[in-house]
């Protein structure tokens, strides 16, 4: 068994695709119109055959309650790896991204948390000892 991908629940798929591609820098892998919603996935340009992130509509009644509770406490439910977190933090802030936690050094890993503008917090993490 392998991990092919996971999903984030977004409040607006078009806005999410814009943010995950134009701002975070991922590439669209699937964008298939299913009527009211679409099946949208993105991949990292550094690993185009790797795991995908699905941008799923948060239409289930429980989804918004769950998301709001996570965001209130500052909890990121999804994490992406970066090579240079300070550089990413600077780059994303210059693009207007709001961080709820600037890079914090936890010893073996440095993490930061950002707002994806679609109702989620996302963690970015740099493993130490990586150039």
């Amino acid at each position: 068994m392998r991990i092919s991908g996971c999903s984030v629940m977004v409040d607006d798929q078009a806005k999410a695709l814009e943010f995950y591609t134009k701002v975070l820098g991922f590439q669209t892998k699937h964008n298939i119109d299913l009527g009211e919603h679409s099946w949208i996935t993105v991949v990292s340009p550094e690993d185009p055959d790797g795991a995908v992130v699905g941008l799923e509509p948060d239409v289930h009644p429980a989804a918004k309650t769950f998301k709001a509770a996570m965001v209130e406490d500052g909890i990121p439910f999804t994490s992406f790896a970066v090579d240079d977190i300070e550089a990413e933090h600077k780059r994303l802030e210059s693009l207007g991204v709001r961080f709820t936690q600037p890079p914090v050094d936890h010893g073996t890993v440095v993490t930061a948390v950002l707002d994806d503008t679609c109702g989620n917090l996302i963690q970015i993490a740099q493993e130490k000892g990586q150039s």
Partner: peptide, 17 residues
């Protein structure tokens, strides 16, 4: 050390530090 933290950040710092 850093004012204005979320519960998540505080928990991380308390665990790791």
């Amino acid at each position: 050390e850093r004012d204005g933290q979320t519960l998540f950040e505080l928990c991380g710092r308390l665990t790791m530090k």
